[in-house]
Amino acid sequence: MTPQDPEAGQVPENLPGLTDPQELREFERRMAFVRVNELDRNPDLVTGDFDFPHLQRIHAYILQDVYPWAGEPRRYGQETMAMGMPHCRAEFLDAEIRRVFTAIDRHRPSPDDRDAAIVTVADHWGELTGVHPFRDGNSRSQRLFFDRYLRQSGWALDWTQIDASAVHAARHVAMATVDSSYLAATLRPGIHRLGEVPTGTLIATQDTRDASRSVEIFRAMIDHKRAGRTADTFTLFPRETSAETPA
């Protein structure tokens, strides 16, 4: 997060002119839900070839009602962090964006091999998590981006079969360790052939990530990895009801 992030107790510039961080968080959640729902129902509202401008258009659409900088990458001094780790510094964003999106373009999900397809997406998503190109809204926009990226190769994710808190944790394990196997393992239960997944699972699971549980899972995954164990032997602990965070 940035020093101006509402979760840090300060309020960034916003279109409705809200000055209370809690009010801004709630407004952002509501409006992003509306916009993601529109994109989920009508993918043609934002199209592209899975390059960075495509992600920018998705981000700009989702947060168009909230921030004047929606769709714009972070600038110098706008640093962010998660799980106690800093994301890519703003001055290095251009180079890192080029590197990650070159790989996203060149190494696309296999249309034939289910496991290879999800491993490819996990590799790219782990890298993009570390880049964190926008001040806010990265998780929402990346989730929709990679959902569509898989669909282009003939696969679809049933998000109701995927633990959103574990995905967030595993993305940051990939960022911390350059090991995306935990993310692949977390996404794997949801991948199916296109046409086998009911419509609306992405929006049905919007805002279901539990922030504190994500931190606990992240620590558990790191400990599991440090003990020399592999992602396929990691077991999630049961979900508990607590505060939700935008996914």
Results as ranks from 00 to 15, higher is better:
Q4P: 00
V11W: 09
P16Y: 08
G17T: 08
D20E: 11
L24K: 02
F27C: 06
M31P: 00
P43L: 04
F52C: 04
P53T: 04
L55P: 08
I62N: 02
L63I: 01
A70G: 13
G71Q: 02
R75L: 14
Y76H: 05
Y76N: 15
A82I: 02
M83R: 10
M85S: 03
R89T: 13
F92H: 13
A95D: 10
I97T: 10
V100Q: 11
D105Y: 09
H107S: 06
S110P: 02
R114W: 01
A117M: 00
V119C: 00
T120A: 09
W125E: 11
E127F: 09
L128Y: 08
V131H: 04
H132I: 08
N138H: 09
Y149F: 13
Q161C: 08
D163R: 09
S165P: 07
A166D: 03
R188F: 12
P189K: 07
G190V: 03
G190S: 09
E196Y: 03
T201G: 06
L202Y: 11
A204V: 05
A204K: 10
T205Q: 13
T205N: 10
Q206K: 03
R209A: 15
R213N: 12
I217M: 11
H224T: 05
R226M: 12
T230H: 13
F234H: 01
F234Y: 14
P246R: 15
